[in-house]
Design a protein around this nucleic acid. Sequence first.
RNA 1: GUCCCCGUAGUUCAAUGGACAGAACGACUCCCUUCUAAGGAGUAGAUCGAAGUUCGAUUCUUCGCGGGGACACCA
Length: 578
Amino acid sequence: MLRKIEAVIKKAVGGKVQVFVTTSEKPEFGDYSTNIAFSLAKEKTFRQAQGKKFPAEIAGDLVKKIQNSDKKRFFEKVESTGGFVNLWVSKKVLIGELGSLLKTKSYNPKAKRLKINLEFISANPTGPLTMANGRGGFLGDTLAKILEVAGHKVTREYYINDAGNQIRLLGDSILAVLGKVLERDEHYQGAYIKDLADVLKSKILSSTGEKKLDSEAIGRLAAAELLKQIKISLKNSGIEFNNWFSEYENLHKKDELKKVLALLEKKGLVEKKEGAVWLKQFVIGGLFARPDSKKESGLGLKTSDIADPDATVGAGEKDRVLVKSDGKPTYFLSDLAYHYDKFVKRKFDLAVDIWGADHHGYVARLQSGVKALGIDSDRLKIIITQLVRLIEDGKEVRMSKRKGDFITLDELIEELGGKPSSAKASAGRDAARFFFLMHTPDSHMDFDLALAKERSLKNPVYYVQYAYVRAFNILKRADAESKISDLKSLSKESELALIKELVKFPDMVLQIAEDYQVSRLARYAMSVARAFNNFYEKERVIGENGEVLPERLALVTVFKDIFARVFALLGIDAPEKM
RNA sequence: GUCCCCGUAGUUCAAUGGACAGAACGACUCCCUUCUAAGGAGUAGAUCGAAGUUCGAUUCUUCGCGGGGACACCA
């Protein structure tokens, strides 16, 4: 819709100006508005042609131009106030838009279809998924769905760190429980380690001689076991993946790390010193120099949401170890191999990584490492989700995965709604999902579990779902057919307001696919629900004698259809009763 | 010490550089002979401070002041 309006205005105004239209926040400023007069006032060529004018004057001229060229009555009203041009779209256009919206599932048929690798959660298989993993998980899952309906091909990937120190440590931790090695401070602790020891006990104790399992082998067995549990948690949370990428199987076993190392050596970017192999960060003149920090990223992402490599590269970045003096590769090297695999071997146009805040210092390193491999770092977007702090009795509770002291995702869902196996399973999932999706990843959230539990009935998700239930009930009771064209006879304020809100849906999807601000969708759901509840209170669809008003029934039908799509993207239930 | 994120209503959070800074919860007033009141209508209530850029700054820049996080031959 935004693009259609922009096109109409551009045509009316003529010339080559960029036209940006936004939805208006207040009814007196129309349905949509544009600040084009302000931009024109500054424009050099415009000044030369028309002389210096104030925005308000220009806006007045634009209104006349638009009115004169709008023969088909696209707009019902065009006004200017304070330099803004405010637009009221005609009912005919709105209804036409809704009609075509109902018929389509793709909101951007003309879009360039990008092949996107979206990697999220990727929690080490050394313990259950935590509440914090849920934040990135819900974000990734919904972002993937939005990118898909916006026309892109998305691979949702979980990177399994099943190689390296932490796997040996996991195996060691289990041996410690079994009394085979001494307990150490750095061992993973918590009840789940004891459970794993029980499960793997006979396998470990029966292995002898040549086939005796070492820490790493045990760690790998344990990791596989934990991964099974992680997959169950993901299923309960409604988070889907379609690719599981094992570091061990796909990179280490295939010698991909060595290949990437050889590539870097060939480029002369590698140095051996102090018994280790290093990646030199500043060897190519200007390669990592700080470019214009104000430049827009290709996707129009907000720099505050996407860690900006240019902000830190050059300032603190230094040589980094790729291979340790004991001959083992660092995590950095395997990450480079992993991203080389994404971009070069699997040919993704774009890789989006969602990481927890504890990794944000790593962003610059990986970005410049990817650059060193000769890959345009604009193709790698890293989204950082800030920490979720758990508050209890007004004080922060420190969570540590290693110490086994944390709230799992399963526990969170259960607290908010009921056991995953129960009939009300989806309630907790929906409450948790909506809660996290409402907030931007930037916000440092304080999460008081007791309060969340107490307030779970006040969670906005129920408000949103309740609106859907109301619509469903009307349709069930009415038991009649209606057509989109029936909408024409609607004229009440609450009816038109709802139509205008519904029409925004595709714009919303496309905008999020551009700027990744997923929280907009949750907020949009709330405002649509509000518009519907308002309509519901004021106008009856089924009269007191049971007669059905077809035009209102049509509106309810459209609402239910679009709302179901919003729910699907958010990954929450569209309930028929509550 | 260096770097990153955050600072908005009593609370938890919103706001592509736009108009009178929005919601939810909480507080206070009203509204159930009506399709589920898990609802609707209304009232009160906020941009950490100081400069700067701009026609216009919650947003961008710089400097303070608070809170959180990261700075390994860990992952």
